Simulated assay, not measured.
Amino acid sequence: MNDNQLLRYSRHILLPQIDIAGQETLIRSRVLIIGAGGLGSPAALYLAASGIGKLVICDGDKVDLTNLQRQIVHNTHSIGLSKAYSVKRTLTGINPEIDIVTLQEHVNEDQLLQLVAETDVVIDASDNFATRHNINKACVLHKKPLVSGAVIRFDGQVTVFDLRRNESPCYHCLFPLDGDNEDMHCAVMGVFSPLAGIIGCTQAAETLKILLDIGETLNGRLQLLNGLTMQWRSIKLHKDPACIVCRISESAAIHIK
């Protein structure tokens, strides 16, 4: 690290769990964020500020006035612009030393396979089950840690699927495709704005812990937050032996590489 980086990241470096070696690990790391909305905004802001060497952020939408209540990476001057352009402009202003790659599109299953293969940790900040399941499939195949979050109304949830570990459950174990998974959109249901910040920041924290290999992550635990009472509930998650995604063979994983 140069002198500017030592100053920029000095408060991380002071932490014995991180130190210079840990900060250098972050600088070498690559994180993929799917979605630059309510969850992706705080996650991207803190990861950029923390010095993640390369952030790849995908979002095909444009900034709308209704987004600004909770999508804090965008501002009034961003209305009408692509979220990809807006997020890169904001993050570059926070930390011009990192590499920020943005894709102005809703990535499909094939694109996700390639993007996930090239990253260290994936953050699911999307807003629909189809995308979440495609992200999960790619992470299972490439054995990449997946940090998943969701918010609606006054309810938030966050967990980690550390798919480097054979015993880890995956997103499909928790929400199988044949289950009752109906998308609930903010435009219809509403969302308490600070809740998106709390869950998104938790996703950023879990990502940093995974990259640094410190503490205890949320792998195998689903954290549920009631924003009205600020009470957290923790639910243990287990791998579903009948999960059709987890049972993908090693040969299939090798084939797609």
Rank of each mutant, 00 (worst) to 15 (best):
146 L>V: 01
147 V>N: 05
147 V>S: 05
148 S>M: 10
148 S>N: 12
149 G>K: 02
149 G>P: 10
149 G>H: 06
149 G>A: 06
150 A>D: 00
150 A>T: 12
150 A>F: 04
151 V>S: 01
151 V>T: 11
151 V>R: 01
151 V>P: 06
151 V>H: 01
152 I>R: 01
152 I>G: 05
152 I>Q: 08
152 I>E: 09
153 R>T: 12
153 R>C: 11
153 R>M: 13
153 R>F: 10
153 R>L: 11
154 F>D: 02
155 D>F: 12
156 G>D: 07
156 G>I: 06
156 G>V: 03
157 Q>M: 13
157 Q>G: 09
157 Q>E: 14
157 Q>F: 12
158 V>E: 07
159 T>L: 09
159 T>E: 02
159 T>A: 07
160 V>D: 05
160 V>I: 09
160 V>N: 03
161 F>G: 03
161 F>T: 02
161 F>H: 05
161 F>Y: 14
161 F>V: 06
162 D>I: 07
162 D>T: 03
163 L>F: 08
164 R>Y: 12
165 R>E: 15
165 R>C: 11
165 R>S: 10
165 R>D: 11
166 N>P: 00
166 N>I: 12
168 S>Q: 03
168 S>F: 08
169 P>F: 07
169 P>K: 05
169 P>Y: 06
170 C>A: 08
170 C>H: 05
170 C>E: 08
171 Y>H: 11
171 Y>E: 05
171 Y>Q: 04
172 H>T: 14
172 H>A: 14
172 H>M: 14
172 H>G: 00
173 C>V: 06
174 L>Y: 10
175 F>A: 07
176 P>L: 01
176 P>N: 04
176 P>A: 06
176 P>W: 02
177 L>G: 02
179 G>C: 08
179 G>W: 01
179 G>Y: 07
179 G>K: 01
179 G>P: 07
179 G>F: 08
180 D>A: 11
180 D>V: 12
180 D>K: 07
181 N>K: 02
181 N>M: 11
181 N>Y: 10
182 E>I: 15
183 D>T: 08
184 M>V: 13
184 M>S: 13
184 M>H: 15
184 M>L: 15
184 M>F: 14
186 C>A: 15
186 C>T: 15
188 V>Q: 14
188 V>A: 13
189 M>E: 14
189 M>R: 09
189 M>N: 12
189 M>I: 14
190 G>P: 12
191 V>I: 12
191 V>M: 11
192 F>P: 00
192 F>T: 12
193 S>V: 04
193 S>I: 00
193 S>N: 13
193 S>A: 15
194 P>N: 07
194 P>T: 06
195 L>A: 08
195 L>R: 04
195 L>Q: 05
